Amino acid sequence: MRTTRVLCTIATAAAVAVGTLTAVTPAQAAVPATIPLQITNNSGRGDAVYLYDLGTNLATGQQGWADANGTFHAWPAGGNPPTPAPDASIAGPGNGGSVTIRIPKFSGRIYFSYGQKLVFKLTTGGLVQPAVQNPSDPNRNILFNWSEYTLNDSGIWINSTQVDMFSAPYAVGVGTQTTGHLKAGGYNAVLNGLKAQAGGWAGLIQTAPNGSILRALSPGHGIETGALANTAMSDYVNRVWTRYTSSTLTVTPFADQPNTKYFGRVSGNVMNFTNSAGQVVTSFQKPDASSIFGCFNLLDAPNDLVRGPISRTLCAGYNRGTLLTTASQPDNNSADFYKDAVTNHYARLIHSQMVDGKAYAFAFDDVGNFESLVNNGNPASATMTLDPFN
């Protein structure tokens, strides 16, 4: 089973964002070892809330968790089969209330769950994250969600994410910036939109034994469960392949490097990209829906300066349906997004219901800065708001 890629996404986003921040000068105060994170519960639910701060200690490289005071605890050794992890839960706020915890210099996740504590286990390779596309996952019937963050010497990056699933609504903030709030009625609008969308999209929705809705899986995970066919994007891909057999797709992956361009042409089952000197720099096989929705496998994006940036651009173009709109990519005009009948309807619906239009509905939704991310180079605090479901 494919592992989730969300933590990789925030790390990539942070790396990109760092380049856009004003450099920290000696006159500026250093980022403290921990900062306060205020969690406010506006959900309207009476369930107990449990919080978890899990991630990688950036000073030591160790995986572990932080308690409410921001003190780091390394995970003990795991086993095979996986062994129970220590209880890292922190009591969250009741409805209408707030709690403040301190978060350390981590690259990790802030989980929150309603009504039940989450189940975490440890293998010899580290923490087993929840993977509710697996019907045997112990967290399958728990209502939960998470935010991702990186806090380091250059500041904080914190986002709301739907890369793996759309579930309990929340928003994040730092300074005067906030992101992740749904429009009034947006939670139900996303779910009802999936129910109405032909082609298996309703099968992304998971319910609890009592029939209540827990979440909608991302389409990549929907392919894993059999809800969506791996041919879900084939018609669009075939049209892209036909077009660029006889014309050229130009990719300019770096906004600050307009002269760095790559040129794609299809030959048989392969799209080859050349540089300005006419040299082939990378090639992509015809992608399936899983590769497109997950931005991996046939659209793998290594952390380099050529294939990775081209792949990110292609992935955004396939998910947003812009590769046939213009032969110059990325297309950062949101008016062009999700217009084709064959598209990532999950991403389309989520973006349409966000107050600011921004979301992390697929791994490289940050192409063109359409991701739900806020950052600050000298943060004094951050916030997370658990929002109403209606």
Rank of each mutant, 00 (worst) to 15 (best):
N332H: 10
H345D: 14
D164H: 00
T71E: 15
N390R: 14
A227T: 02
T150L: 11
K261H: 12
F144G: 08
T4W: 02
Y50P: 02
G44M: 00
N139I: 12
A202L: 10
F106W: 06
R239S: 11
I90A: 05
D340E: 10
Q133H: 15
A301I: 00
G108H: 11
N230V: 13
N41V: 01
G199N: 06
T60F: 05
M1I: 11
A382R: 10
P36M: 00
L323D: 09
A363Q: 10
R307E: 07
T313N: 05
N159C: 04
S167T: 11
I213K: 11
T207L: 03
G294M: 09
R307T: 14
I142G: 05
Q129N: 11
L182H: 15
Q279W: 08
P76I: 03
A196H: 00
Q28H: 12
N259W: 12
T231H: 09
T124Q: 15
A48N: 13
L373Q: 04
G94S: 15
L151A: 05
W157K: 01
T3C: 12
G211M: 03
N95W: 11
I110A: 04
A15Y: 07
Q133W: 14
D331T: 15
Y111F: 15
R307I: 05
T123D: 13
A229S: 15
Q38L: 00
T83D: 04
E148G: 14
D164M: 08
G78V: 03
G357M: 04
S381V: 11
G126P: 08
A363M: 14
I101H: 13
L299I: 12
L54S: 07
K339F: 06
R320C: 02
V266Q: 07
A74E: 00
D67L: 12
G64K: 07
S147E: 02
W241G: 00
P309N: 02
G294I: 03
P253C: 11
A23R: 13
R307M: 06
Y50E: 01
S107F: 13
A11N: 09
I158E: 00
H221W: 14
I213D: 01
Y187L: 05
V119K: 12
N152E: 03
L214C: 07
D164V: 01
R312G: 09
I103T: 10
A17D: 14
H73P: 06
D387L: 15
A255K: 04
S212Q: 08
F72I: 01
A59H: 15
D153A: 14
A131N: 14
S334V: 15
V6Y: 05
V342S: 07
A301D: 01
A48Q: 09
G64D: 00
G278T: 04
A27I: 08
V251K: 10
V306M: 14
D47T: 08
V237I: 05
V280R: 13
P82W: 05
T71M: 14
P330I: 08
S89A: 14
V174S: 09
A77C: 09
F370G: 12
T150D: 12
Y338C: 09
A23M: 08
V6F: 10
W75S: 03
V266D: 07
A66I: 05
E371Y: 00
N275I: 00
Q329T: 10
S160Q: 07
H181C: 04
R243A: 12
I213P: 01
T343I: 10
V190W: 01
N390W: 07
G222M: 05
S212R: 07
A216C: 05
D256P: 09
P82H: 04
